[in-house]
């Protein structure tokens, strides 16, 4: 009965449900931003309050904070649905699981990734970033964090049956997120110091997000199917 369904209805319902869950009680939307804030606050205690130094490493610090906040918030992406039996019903319904994963990732990003992007300009003030640099970091985060969510979904699907999969998820996924980090920070840096053009790494970053939006859902869906056995 999957044939002639207009995809819009169930996709919209799934997106709305995921978004509602992430902003309501027990959802992780605000915790991610709080974690981001905590990480950024800790950095000056580690490297010292030198504003010039902070301005130089600011984009990298914001990116690493966003990376950690994204990855650590992903462990419940599929696990919550597995624990209460929803995942079984989703697997049975005959909906393309790749699309289900993609919609869940987008909703998760809208619930937890987008607040990080919105918070980034505020946190950039703490790190003494120029307005131009702030804009560049925010733009690269907006383009790059969906890739982190989509890549992280693979780890979330692989660790779906594990009680304490959060750390393992981060270990599995961090190698794959290195390219995103490299091009994200490079693009942001290029906007401040200009030996390299901004557009080259930025377009690479866009490409990585597009690749992740294909590889992530396919691999995660494959892992979820195997986990149901």
């Amino acid at each position: 009965m999957s044939g002639p369904t207009p995809a819009g209805t169930w996709v919209g319902a799934l997106f709305a449900r995921e978004l509602r869950l992430s902003v309501r009680v027990g959802g992780g939307a605000l915790i991610g931003v709080l974690f981001f804030l905590a990480v950024i606050t800790v950095i000056p205690f580690g490297v010292g309050p030198d504003l010039n130094l902070l301005a130089r490493i600011g984009p990298a610090v914001l990116w690493i904070g966003a990376l950690l906040a994204t990855l650590l918030g992903l462990d419940r992406l599929f696990q919550a649905d597995r624990d209460d039996g929803s995942l079984d019903l989703m697997l049975m319904a005959g909906r393309p699981l790749e699309l289900v994963v993609l919609v869940k990732c987008l909703a998760h990003w809208a619930g937890t990734g987008l607040p990080l992007v919105i918070a980034a300009p505020v946190l950039a003030i703490f790190l003494n970033l120029e307005p131009l640099a702030t804009g560049a970091v925010t733009l690269t985060l907006a383009v790059g964090t969906p890739a982190l969510t989509l890549i992280g979904a693979i780890g979330a699907a692989l660790t779906v049956s594990l009680r304490r999969g959060g750390l393992l998820l981060a270990v599995l996924v961090i190698p794959f997120s290195i390219p995103v980090l490299i091009f994200g920070v490079s693009a942001a840096d290029a906007a401040i110091t200009d030996p390299t053009p901004f557009l080259t790494p930025f377009l690479f970053l866009c490409a990585l997000t597009l690749v992740a939006s294909v590889v992530g859902p396919f691999a995660a869906a494959m892992a979820l199917r195997f986990s149901s056995d």
């Binding site: 390219p179 990585l208 590889v215």
Partner: peptide
Amino acid sequence: AVLTLVGAINLPII
């Protein structure tokens, strides 16, 4: 196996 294949796709990118 899934992770290995994802890694194989990602290694050249990395």
